[in-house]
Design a protein around this nucleic acid. Sequence first.
DNA 1: TATTGTTATACTCTATAACTATA
DNA 2: TATAGTTATAGAGTATAACAATA
Lengths: 138, 138
Amino acid sequence: MSTEDLRLYGLFKRAQALLAEGYGPALAPHAVDGRELAVLTQLVRHGPGSQQEISNRLGIDRTTMVALVDALTGRGLVRRTADPRDRRRNLVELTDAGRAVRAAATPAVDEVEARFLAPLTPAERETLTALLRKVVSR
Amino acid sequence: MSTEDLRLYGLFKRAQALLAEGYGPALAPHAVDGRELAVLTQLVRHGPGSQQEISNRLGIDRTTMVALVDALTGRGLVRRTADPRDRRRNLVELTDAGRAVRAAATPAVDEVEARFLAPLTPAERETLTALLRKVVSR
DNA sequence: TATTGTTATACTCTATAACTATA
DNA sequence: TATAGTTATAGAGTATAACAATA
């Protein structure tokens, strides 16, 4: 496929598709998908949080988050505990297994991103991600 | 939502979502969606083509293209004619109505993109799209 | 044998509405 | 009254497999 007929939306869509193609094989050995890894990583950075907090940080609907946390819990990567301060909320927290999976899987997706960005010079790579981040922060 | 927890894939996904939000209202008065407009624009640029050619140029599956062309045909924006050189193929071509809709809708999506890129300087806008195009051409 | 268009089908991701338990 | 989690459900968008017509 050429890219000359694509507008901005098409370019983003194609970029996503290319990355997704790489994520599949890279993450398969680690038994998580990209979204699940994002949840694990987010918990490493911010510590335990409610499902809604995780949803907001990652831009995933809270109703979608239910099944996501279910799946991670089922594989023993996170655990739900009651929030003592507000019994409506679950606190989702990493298990040791979850920490281990996230540590093992992260280099794999780093490499997928590196391969995706390979056509650019190192300076261009920085520029692209910086501009993306800038335009997408609202 | 903040963006600091997003990796490259998440940034693309968010960019797409922001653009899609804009496309909806902008295109509603013109009775086409973004994909349909892409088909019309592609026909303006390259002239009549088979469904498969259009599919390949836009990165849309040929089975998906069937319904897309059906919809455009139903609204009189394109027309299917038999290819005299190869009777397996349809030639999809613009109608006058299709040309008019594409001409009317294009400024609307231009404006959506401009609004999306507004946080960047004009130079940064050029850089972002150029780098995107470069990294996405394979 | 291979290709184009087509249909049926299924799968993923996402969103909406409504419920419950808590606040 | 409002919020967190949950469930059921439906809607996009996409892809796979199979078929007919044609090359």
